[in-house]
Amino acid sequence: MFKANITMKTALLGSLLVFANASIADEFTDADVKRWEQQFMDTVKQGRELWTSPKLGNNGVVCAQCHPNAANTHPETYPKFQKQLGKVAPLWEMINWCLKNPLEGQPLAADDPKMIALQAYVTHERRGVKLEPGKH
């Protein structure tokens, strides 16, 4: 109890110091948070559009045909061993496998905004599920 009090006081002192010198800290406001969350949700929305777009691949097949609401994509289990790739792989490599195979299309670069949007959507649909990397 006594120890905890000390810690709390130290923490308070720490935050006071931060207030004293705003330029050295990662400080942000509610408005910042709102804006950033909006930007994330816009990315999720773009991801959802790609997820249901016949133009993402070459044969008109869309991701959502097999994965409604991105179900059974299990983003919380990556990286994991993926039989189709013969190695432990992150989610984006498996997305590319799907783009090349069921969708008969072209893969995306890891940092392609489309790939980021797809991952944002998939992960958002799975929010709240605990991380279990490697799970099968």
Binding site: F81, G86, K87, K100, N101
Partner: peptide, 15 residues
């Protein structure tokens, strides 16, 4: 072998 050839799904390579 690992990619476009789709060989690895049956002719297995692991880590």
């Amino acid at each position: 072998f690992l990619g476009q050839g789709r060989c690895v799904s049956c002719h297995v390579i692991e880590n």
